[in-house]
């Protein structure tokens, strides 16, 4: 199906799709990652999937030997190489299909957290996107190395407490603003890039479906609440994701053949970054007279990024012709 024909469906349509993940995995109660995985894999529909997974929370919790929560084929080899591993699976799929040794169609998904995507796995992701494999690369971004006990990553928000950006007498948590990985993916000129959140499941499933349908590589960056690392209540995970989206800190948008589209504009319902920061213990130290500037600065940065995103949507609206998309595709 051409990606343009894919529309958001009602929950009744999506609930009929198979659940590709079983219960009995050992991710923390209230973790956002399995919610994301279930929704993303609903985007694959009935198709069998091969999942390549980086070392991390999802990996260690879903495949505790001798149990696996994956109903599809799954491979994990190391932390930094999920995208390279799925590249090899794709090459094998092409080769074996050509020879008639494999007859089924498979969707190919690479899964890594922000550590395995923004940091140690960035090179492998960039290489895979440039080589134009027909794969989907998913980042579940919980904003730190949660699996090993909350160390900072390039996705950690400024001012956040982590165990390697601790709060001390002279430092108020992480010093730097986060990296914009979604924009880095966009710069690879691939057919489809999207940012999403599990609280808007129709939007995420729709984006995953588009990503799987795209001819070539697609990248999904999805906000993944982490009660343990965010120091938040287990039951608040989905509500927190929604609050972060409503503050425009994590805008929902997609870029199809270079054309930006904002999928959700909170307008009058717009919230402030302080709304969700106050609910997360990792930002508790920021609500003091000496540290409040970090909250203000994050708000300014967020507003600036949002304005820039809107400008990109306006500026790119006239591009994205079929010819431009085809020119980007590799030769046979």
């Amino acid at each position: 199906m051409a990606t343009q024909e894919i529309k958001k469906q009602s929950p009744k349509v999506y609930i009929d799709r198979p659940d590709h993940l079983s219960g009995g995995h050992r991710l923390c109660a209230g973790c956002g990652a399995p919610v994301i995985l279930r929704q993303v894999l609903m985007g694959a529909g009935d198709s069998p999937v091969v999942i390549s997974n980086a070392t991390g929370c999802v990996e260690v919790s879903t495949t505790i030997y001798p149990y696996t929560a994956w109903k599809d084929s799954y491979i994990h080899s190391a932390f930094e190489n999920a995208a390279a591993t799925i590249s090899g699976v794709e090459a094998a799929l092409i080769s074996l299909k050509k020879q008639g040794k494999v007859t089924e169609d498979f969707k190919l998904l690479s899964v890594a957290g922000d550590g395995g995507s923004y940091d140690i796995g960035l090179q492998a992701i960039s290489g895979a996107l440039e080589r134009y494999h027909d794969i989907v690369i998913l980042c579940y971004d919980n904003g730190a190395y949660m699996n090993t006990g909350f160390q900072r990553s390039a996705a950690t928000p400024k001012g956040a407490w982590t165990t390697t950006s601790p709060v001390g007498k002279v430092r108020p948590g992480k010093n730097q603003q986060r990296k914009n990985l979604t924009e880095i993916a966009i710069a690879h000129n691939i057919p489809y890039v999207a940012q999403a959140s599990p609280h808007n499941f129709r939007d995420l499933i729709y984006k995953a479906e588009k990503a799987f349908a795209a001819k070539g590589p697609a990248f999904l960056n999805v906000l993944s609440p982490c009660p343990r690392g965010w120091r938040s209540k287990e039951s608040d995970s989905i509500q927190l994701a929604e609050a972060m989206v409503k503050s425009n800190y994590w805008p929902l948008f997609e870029v199809e053949n270079g054309v930006y589209k904002i999928n959700y504009d909170p307008k009058k319902r717009k919230g402030a970054v302080a709304d969700w920061m106050k609910q997360q213990g990792r930002f508790r130290h920021l609500f003091t007279p000496e540290n409040e500037w970090i909250v203000e600065e994050t708000q300014e940065m967020t507003d600036y990024q949002w304005e820039r995103l809107k400008a990109m949507e306006e500026a790119t609206a006239r591009f994205g012709t079929q010819e431009a998309a085809e020119a980007q595709e590799p030769a046979e």
Binding site: V50, T63, P66, S73, I75, F106
Partner: peptide, 13 residues
């Protein structure tokens, strides 16, 4: 991995 009838998990924890 490419056996849809017998999916496997490789490289477990």
């Amino acid at each position: 991995l490419l056996d849809a009838k017998n999916p496997v998990t490789m490289g477990p924890f």
